[in-house]
Design a protein around this nucleic acid. Structure first.
Lengths: 187, 187
DNA sequence: GTCTATAGATCGATAGAC
DNA sequence: GTCTATCGATCTATAGAC
């Protein structure tokens, strides 16, 4: 049986969870070493750029996941309405029905934003463009599609903030349901 | 001319801005000392509990401001619709049209949440209760008021995240406009 | 590649002079 | 009340043995 973390990619999920729990500044190498089971030297072997490279790798992994599972289908699915419905299901599952925060959104609010500005902006711009594209193909005007998109993304992010703040994941689930309704996917 | 920071309360705005910019973990005492012009000893004289007491004082100050300017009017204004309209104007001004983040929301996403859970939850619960109350007095059912309230708070928080993420404060302004429309205050 | 040990800087917090 | 000096702990990152 291979050991828990055999290569760089195996460490990413653990790193992601750590950054989610403690933020960038709050995640120390001691904590990382403990959680991954990797010594400092191994960590610096996999991530020569240190903690900053670890966080960048996590953001890249998140972006790749959303691109594969959400952005891509939104842009290319012949049935845009179904792609949007699946987006919302995937989002609800990804954020564990409100018990898990959005790392990109959390980074956007801290000074981590300055460090990872390009990746944070890229994530939201991609999501925005993909969803607006699907809405246009569904029949909305460019203007309406942009408006609905912005409202949906803000609601999702805000729903996560709210759920976490009042310690009630159901607030996020209700928020997703409202978005589903607002995008016309609950009929 | 008195010096910049003569008493405890004078330090709060500077502290608030620091925590907003760098988060709880990212705000070091060196930074605080530099920005407030207070030596370490003075800081510990005003805040014996150290950094944690500073952040708690900032959160209390924020809560007091919202209670005074927003929650109170929402609960007691004889014209609930006007109170809601004024809430949105005050919110837009407070968050500097999207250039300033919500410290409470940012804390909710980090591990600062565990430290300040009660204050964070209190802030959102008060806002929620006050806005729902105004909406009920405006004629909505309890259920509808709760739903509209949750949607509004999530949109505001998400609008701040989005504006910061894509570096476009106008996204927040559009979000507030949508909330204003959703709450029926733009007629 | 992975370990232990530790460098060098910075952390939050405190002591004591004034 | 505010200063300087400094504590012990912890931080990120590196060195060197294996």
């Amino acid at each position: 049986m291979p050991r828990l973390v055999a290569e760089r990619a195996d460490a990413i999920p653990a790193l992601a969870e750590l950054f989610r729990e403690h933020g960038f500044d709050g995640t120390s190498l001691a904590l990382i070493s403990e959680r991954t089971g990797l010594g400092r030297s191994s960590l610096y072997h996999f991530f020569p750029g240190g903690k900053e490279e670890m966080a960048a790798a996590v953001l890249a992994e998140i972006d790749a996941w959303f691109e594969q599972e959400i952005f891509g289908p939104l842009r290319s699915d012949p049935d845009p309405r179904q792609a949007i419905a699946e987006m919302l299901s995937a989002v609800e599952a990804y954020f564990q029905s409100g018990r898990r925060i959005c790392l990109v959104g959390a980074f956007a609010l801290n000074d981590a934003r300055d460090r990872f500005a390009a990746q944070i902006q890229g994530y939201f711009v991609s999501w925005q463009a993909a969803l607006a594209d699907a809405l246009r193909r569904q029949g909305h005007t460019t203007e309406a599609a942009g408006d609905l998109t912005e409202a949906a993304l803000a609601a999702i992010q805000g729903g996560l903030v709210l759920a976490r703040a009042i310690d009630d994941p159901v607030a996020f689930q209700r928020t997703v349901a409202r978005v589903r309704h607002g995008l016309g996917c609950d009929a």
